[in-house]
Amino acid sequence: MTTMSLMERIALLEQSQKGDMIPASEVWKLLDNVKEMFGEKPGTGHGHSSELYRELGELAKFINGAKKELQEVKASNIADEHLPNAANHLDAIVQMTEQATGRIMDECDQITNFHNDVKERLLSADPQIDANVLMGVDDAMNQAQTSVTHIYEACNFQDITVQRIQKVVKALQEIERQVLRMVVVFGLVENQSKLDEATKQELTEDAALLQGPQLAGQGLEQDDIDAILSKLL
């Protein structure tokens, strides 16, 4: 997972937004302009201008309140620490499931080797083992091997889990982006730096890998796909 500083991520967000965000300072300037336009001081106007000024006052109060709330919850910390930490934990889960699945499959391979070894020893035993006994043992070994295959099949879960986690990471990145957006709009962070092209390219490639599996009931099942294929192939 790519590690970027808060400043770098803000810079990336600003670049991608391209003027979509209006900083709070701009809203204040707008208020001043309106004030000049009507040539009035707060509370002295009448009619429409008075109503407009009152509404703008309410808007200013709302912005101030939201800014205070964001400062209290330390929005920049959420974007800079909590959300990336959550993504790192999910990354760790991916690695752990991969290691655990690898161990399970290693053990399955060991069992298979053990079965093959036992079969060879039984077949080459001296004196020879009764044919009926050998057949019984062979049947039991084959059943055990079928179970090993089922364990392998069940290990599919790891790949599916990883893809689902990647979807969650993508959602976290979007939340982080929105929080950063608020941080920027309300001017909670200054001195923003710019990202280099290589980092942006890396982020784009990461995003391309985030297509995950569908949930149950979404997308097509194997039977549906077979039906489509039977018409097309």
């Binding site: 893809q163 297509q211 599996p213 569908q214 997308g219 097509l220 194997q222 796909i225």
Partner: peptide
Amino acid sequence: TAEGKRENVI
């Protein structure tokens, strides 16, 4: 694939 989208199959 883990994604059974009709457009992907096509």
